[in-house]
Design a protein around this nucleic acid. Structure first.
Length: 320
DNA sequence: GGCCAGGCTAGCA
DNA sequence: TGCTAGCATGGC
């Protein structure tokens, strides 16, 4: 549903409504950002609004979103201040539906989780939580590589510095600067020496630039991934230096939105699993995969909820 | 100052 | 196949 209209005297050149599958908790989505910062987003918690730049094709477009309705009847209003062609409208809506996990039905997953006693409290506490995905696979991979072995806050700082160095800037009517994530071409043109002053390690700088070049020269074809099985994707991408299993699992989970990934090497997941399952020792990767067998075919969602238990503790949320 | 962060590679048995 | 030192930096 798209139309043109006047609001508060301003011309909103494109607007539409995105339907969502309940239950959907905007509050949880936004609260997660407190512990998982994303420098691309401008969030207003009081008004449940979010603004960021999406690339529609190659064109960066500033998009304003308002979360509306209720947990059981949720929807998103979106608008832009530029006109969009019909195909751009379709592409933008498809991207938004993907990014906000609009079509994921949590009900059967909760039913599944309730069979795992330690998960019951999480299905109640985090009801309606789902992932906000990355908007494309290039930036998803780059952000995941950046996030290897460093804390989330530092990773967000490095991501922001990369965007400031090589991304596109858009300024809104209030003067706020919005960063669009760099294209693969822009990153491919960089040298590791460009990233070292931003506090990237030498190796991480090489990994990211090599990856961008592999896409530009066709060694890696991201569009083909959507047709491939999880195991094939792991095999294909871990052939690249700097990309290990954890990184590809995160790409499939945060970038592709696949439902059954278990990044078992993840330190946050190890800590969370120990906490939620009340284990005497921190589980290793093998132990996590063993426990996770009971979570099929929804291991991504289990992982998210276990991570979020850690996030809630960090945010000092009270558990009533 | 020591240890931990949403790991990966290279080298070695 | 499986194990481990080394990597680099920030935050507590």
């Amino acid at each position: 549903m798209a139309n043109h209209h006047i609001k508060n005297g301003e011309m909103l050149l494109y607007s539409s409504v995105i339907s969502l599958t309940p239950p959907y908790s905007f509050e949880r989505l936004l609260r997660r950002l407190e512990t998982h910062p994303d420098p691309q987003l401008l969030v207003n918690v009081q008004e449940s609004t979010l603004r960021r730049v999406f690339r529609v094709g190659a064109r960066p477009i500033l998009v304003s979103l308002q979360f509306a309705g209720t947990m059981e009847q949720p929807f998103i209003r979106l608008h832009t201040e530029v006109t969009l062609s019909a195909s751009e409208q379709q592409l933008l809506e498809k991207t938004i539906r993907h990014v906000f996990s609009a079509d994921l039905d949590l009900n059967p997953i909760y039913e599944h989780m309730r069979q795992q006693q330690p998960m019951v409290i999480l299905t109640e506490r985090f009801r309606g939580l789902r992932l906000m995905l990355d908007s494309d696979l290039f930036q998803s991979m780059v952000k995941t590589i950046i996030g290897q072995q460093i804390n989330l806050a530092f990773a967000a700082a490095l991501t922001q510095r990369l965007m400031e160095l090589a991304g596109d800037v858009m300024v809104d009517e209030t003067g706020h600067k919005f960063m669009a994530f760099p294209t693969e071409e822009a990153v491919a043109r960089l040298e590791p020496t460009d990233l070292r002053p931003l506090q990237f390690s030498q190796r991480k700088a090489e990994y990211i630039i090599d990856y961008a070049r592999a896409i530009v020269n066709g060694t890696v074809d991201l569009d083909r991934l959507w047709q491939m099985e999880d195991d094939e994707i792991i095999e294909h991408l871990t052939a690249q230096r700097g990309i290990g299993r954890w990184t590809v699992e995160c790409l499939m989970m945060f970038g592709m939105g696949r439902p059954d990934l278990l990044p078992a090497a993840d330190i946050g997941l190890r800590n969370g699993l120990q906490m939620v399952y009340e284990l005497a020792e921190k589980p290793d990767e093998k132990e996590i995969r063993r426990i996770g067998e009971d979570w099929r075919p929804w291991r991504s969602v289990y992982s998210l909820y276990i991570w979020e238990a850690v996030g809630a503790v960090r945010r000092k949320e009270t558990w009533e």
